[in-house]
């Protein structure tokens, strides 16, 4: 759905989304990387299992919740990628209630 305009060159890192290796640029957010994947969605809701994807990119919608290195639920739009990071899409999981 989205594409990157430049080749990050030496700033390239690899992260794993549901086990698949994808390249990213150091410093960008997990949510930005997820929006470039053909899958299109980053979590499904707990009630209707509908797919959702990052919506606001600034921390106010919580649509970007993912598990990172076994820890859920982090806001993907507020979390920069790190080389080797393991990201899991959350399926049907009731996200942390406030």
């Amino acid at each position: 759905m989205f594409r990157k305009l430049h080749n990050p060159g030496s700033a390239t890192v690899t992260i794993y989304i549901d086990g698949c290796a994808v390249t990213a640029e150091a410093g960008e957010s997990i949510a930005a990387v997820m929006l470039r994947q053909p899958t299109g969605w980053s979590r499904t809701t707990s009630i209707s299992q509908s797919p959702r994807a990052p919506y606001c990119m600034m921390g106010v919608c919580f649509e970007c919740l993912v598990a990172v290195d076994g820890k859920g639920s982090l806001q993907g739009c507020l979390t920069p990628v790190r080389d080797g990071m393991r990201v899991t899409r959350q399926q049907g999981r009731r996200s942390l209630s406030a």
Binding site: M1, L5, E28, Y55, M57, M58, C77
Partner: peptide, 20 residues
């Protein structure tokens, strides 16, 4: 998925050089 705010898209452009 596919509906975002304009602000979100602008953040993608600034921080990740990422466009539709």
């Amino acid at each position: 998925p596919g509906v975002l705010t304009v602000g979100a898209a602008q953040i993608l452009l600034k921080t990740a050089s990422t466009v539709p």
